[in-house]
Design a protein around this nucleic acid. Structure first.
Length: 157
DNA sequence: GCCAACGTTGGC
DNA sequence: GCCAACGTTGGC
């Protein structure tokens, strides 16, 4: 049984928000459309069922982790890549040779208090998060300690 | 709206 | 394989 790991995934709330995830059937969504190799590798190789996912709103007011989710399906080919009608169509990818991968996540809890990027940047034990160091990576690892701190901050009443 | 940082593409 | 040019992300 592999150790449970933790991740952070970003989304622009105007495109897809945590509330959108809550409205999905069984609160589960396919995390399709990621077209970055580092993020792809993480989803394809590292994310496992049961792992925790911080859900972060980027390009938002405020930018913040707004809730968390759980991985319910490990990496598998992102079939939107070979759908010509998809916004994320990539003609280089094909069913017999997929380039892009995704996972499924299920919403677990919306934070009572979103944990803002400002908070994270000024917190002694959070300011070395990948989120701060490389703001462009849309799927990124989170340490056990970072996870615990952010969940405590977000779920406190 | 601006722009810095980053990732990708493509010519050589 | 290098690197300039370009496109995108995302904070401010």
């Amino acid at each position: 049984m592999p150790e449970r790991r933790f991740w952070l995934m970003k989304s622009e709330p105007g495109v897809y928000s945590y509330d959108d995830l809550l409205k999905e059937e069984e609160r589960i969504a396919e995390w399709d459309g990621v077209r970055n190799y580092t993020a792809r590798n993480t989803m394809r190789d590292d994310m496992q069922v049961g792992d925790g996912v911080l859900f972060y709103h980027s390009n938002s007011k405020p930018n913040a982790v707004v809730g968390y989710a759980i991985v319910v399906k490990a990496g598998y080919p992102d079939f939107t890549a070979w759908d010509p009608n998809s916004d994320h169509h990539d003609p280089r990818s094909a069913p017999d040779n997929p380039i892009w991968y995704m996972v499924d996540i299920r919403a677990e809890n919306k934070f009572h208090k979103p944990v803002t990027l400002q908070q994270i940047k000024s917190h002694d034990h959070l300011q070395d998060m990948v989120l701060v160091k490389n703001s462009r990576l849309s799927v990124q690892p989170v340490t056990n300690r970072q996870w615990k701190i952010i969940l405590t901050l977000g779920m406190s009443v």
